[in-house]
Amino acid sequence: MAQAIKQTEEKLDRKEWMSLLAKAPADRLAELWAAADSAPEHVFLRAPEQGAVMVRGRTGATGAPFNLGEMTVTRCTARLSDGTVGHGYVQGRDKTKAVTAALIDALMQTDQAHVIHDAILMPLRENAEAAAQAKAAKAAATKVEFFTLVRGED
């Protein structure tokens, strides 16, 4: 119960949930989506489409932008029967993932938002945080702890 209260207190905004969906592992998202069993009726305003985005860096990390190379992205736009429009922009070439992201984005704008939020978005965020944490912890173990050898007398 304490968990549930905590979850409803910190609601994700649209930018956060779309970012979370874009980066989510496709199989985990599919699993949570199937378990939530809330796929709505919809039509595509933009059928799932694979494409590329040019990723930019900056000269010297802080200077003028330059083109580093492209990454694959799949996008989709769906409209629910009540007229709500959802967009999915996800990393990679998985069309199913883009459709799921668009439907979740749409549902998050309806009265089902809290259900989707707790059943899908919160677990995704916890997974992402745990994965990042595990990676950081392994890197941290390779941090050099310098010590000085005292040489000579005194």
């Binding site: 590329a52 040019m54 990723v55 930019r56 932008p65």
Partner: peptide, 10 residues
Amino acid sequence: LPRFGASEPM
């Protein structure tokens, strides 16, 4: 691949 756009500089 169609290009959807360019990212913000990382």
